[in-house]
Simulated scan of single mutants.
Amino acid sequence: MTEISSNLPETGPDSLDDDTLFAELVGQTARIEWAELERFFAKGQILKIAPTLDLVDVAMAVVRDRAESVNAWQEAGQIDALDTDTARRWAAGEATLWAVVTPPWILVQESDEAPVRH
């Protein structure tokens, strides 16, 4: 099975300015199949991101620990742990999934199109 890891520099995301980090996250955002995510779901490491949010903006907020933004999205139900019903639907191949890794989380968004590239 494919290992999913962040490709952020070994020096860590804190060593990058926001523009560089954003570009790194855009470059790491990719379409993914459920089979590559399943074991991370079992570990509780997948966060489902609402299609109304920009996946890379959310990743930036998570990496930069912008708790106010993340908490607001969580309270609005736009970011949540992946639920079993959604996981079953994704496992049945009924969705196009996009993901970006923000250790320890894998942020996953259901979308028919590629995420917006800034």
Rank of each mutant, 00 (worst) to 15 (best):
E94G: 14
A81T: 08
I49L: 07
T52Q: 12
Q109L: 01
E110Y: 02
A114T: 13
V116M: 09
T2V: 13
A42L: 05
A92T: 11
A42E: 15
W98I: 04
A61W: 00
E10Q: 07
L82S: 09
I106M: 03
P9T: 03
R66Y: 08
N71P: 06
L107Q: 02
S69G: 10
P9F: 05
T2Y: 08
V58H: 04
A30M: 09
I79A: 00
W98R: 04
L97F: 06
A50M: 04
F41P: 02
T29W: 07
E113L: 07
W105M: 05
R117I: 09
W105Y: 08
W73F: 08
A76L: 07
S69E: 15
E94Q: 15
E113T: 14
T2S: 11
A114C: 11
S69Q: 15
K43S: 15
D80V: 13
D65Y: 11
A91C: 13
L25R: 01
R88C: 07
S5F: 11
T86F: 08
G77R: 08
K48F: 03
G77W: 11
E3N: 05
L25Y: 02
V116H: 06
L82I: 03
I4E: 00
I106T: 08
S69Y: 14
M60E: 11
D83S: 14
S69N: 15
L21H: 07
E24G: 00
E68S: 12
T52H: 09
E68K: 14
A87I: 07
P103K: 11
M60D: 12
Q109M: 04
A59Q: 03
V58I: 14
S15P: 09
W98C: 00
V63A: 11
T20L: 15
Q78T: 10
